[in-house]
Simulated scan of single mutants.
Amino acid sequence: MSKPQVSQHQLNEQQYQGKSEAYLKSKVHAQGLEFGKMQALVQQHQYQEILDLGCGGGHVSYHLAPYAKAITAYDLSAEMVDLVVQQAQQKGFANVTGQVGVAENLSFAAQRFDLVVSRYSAHHWQNLPQALAEIHRVLRDHGRVVIFDIVGSSHPILDTFIQSIEFIRDPSHVRDYSLAEWIQMTEQAGFHAQQIERQSLTLDFQSWVQRMQSPADAVATILNLQNKVSDLVRDYYKVQKDGTFVSQAVYLELTKI
């Protein structure tokens, strides 16, 4: 009997089973300068209906809940969504609700949200242009989108390195898009970039692989790759002896046009 085929969406869901608590407690996911920017944006424009797209451990929802009327925590993983709703209730945020689904097919009416926020999620999406088209559809006229994600590089060897170790650590990884790719795809989807800000993110190696429960052979392969790369790659990512490295992230604030 042939082995059942597994779709990318199914792989994503499988990869995150049993990991919701790890992402809730992750310092990388719970902290960040971008939260202050998001809060200021919501307060400035008085956004009321917010979609936390690819909510993961729910940190965007928790940070924005005090300033909005309603937040929908949306994720492919039912386990993640359940965790976020439970945590929101414990924190006293009755305005946070959850919904399970994929980014490429948002089950919401057109122009439902004032603001869509996606943090550390887009590199898992199976079809980014389709997801951006869906975001554009559910966003109200002149609404905004905030995307915060790891970015790849336009330099081939630097890009190959980051994509390789990401995929070995987590087979549900699709792509860390370069900033140029992000700009091109968001413009094609009907968005205008209001703010673009790059950030450097130090990733403690042990926490990085433990959070995903990467198997020992995958961890060994990543360390082997890190030991064999050129000085160009090692210096750019500031690879340390224990495997800790620095990745690049981008804060994109987009307006629907």
Rank of each mutant, 00 (worst) to 15 (best):
V246G: 02
I147L: 13
V100Y: 06
V233L: 01
T72G: 00
A30G: 02
Q213T: 04
E253S: 12
A70L: 12
I135Q: 13
R169N: 06
T72K: 05
H173A: 06
W182L: 02
S247L: 09
L76K: 08
H123T: 05
E21R: 15
L33H: 15
L33D: 10
V239I: 15
F35I: 12
N224H: 11
V151D: 00
E197W: 06
E253G: 03
V85T: 07
H63P: 04
L51I: 04
Y47P: 01
R198K: 11
Y251W: 09
S247P: 09
D176S: 10
E197N: 11
Q126Y: 08
I222T: 05
Q17D: 04
S77R: 04
A40I: 10
V229K: 01
E21Y: 13
T186H: 05
L139M: 07
T186N: 02
Q195C: 14
A78L: 14
G92L: 14
G58V: 11
Q90L: 11
A88S: 14
R112I: 01
S178A: 05
A88G: 15
Q48A: 11
K19E: 05
S178F: 02
T72I: 13
H59S: 00
Q86M: 12
D176W: 01
Q48T: 03
F245D: 06
A68T: 12
A73W: 04
S121H: 01
Q43L: 14
F167N: 02
E13N: 15
N95R: 06
W208L: 09
Q195Y: 11
S230E: 01
W208M: 09
A68P: 03
K228Q: 12
K27N: 15
L24V: 13
A216P: 07
K27T: 11
K238C: 08
S26K: 09
L76F: 10
R211S: 07
L115V: 05
I50S: 03
K69R: 10
V42M: 07
A131N: 07
S2F: 09
D82I: 12
R112V: 00
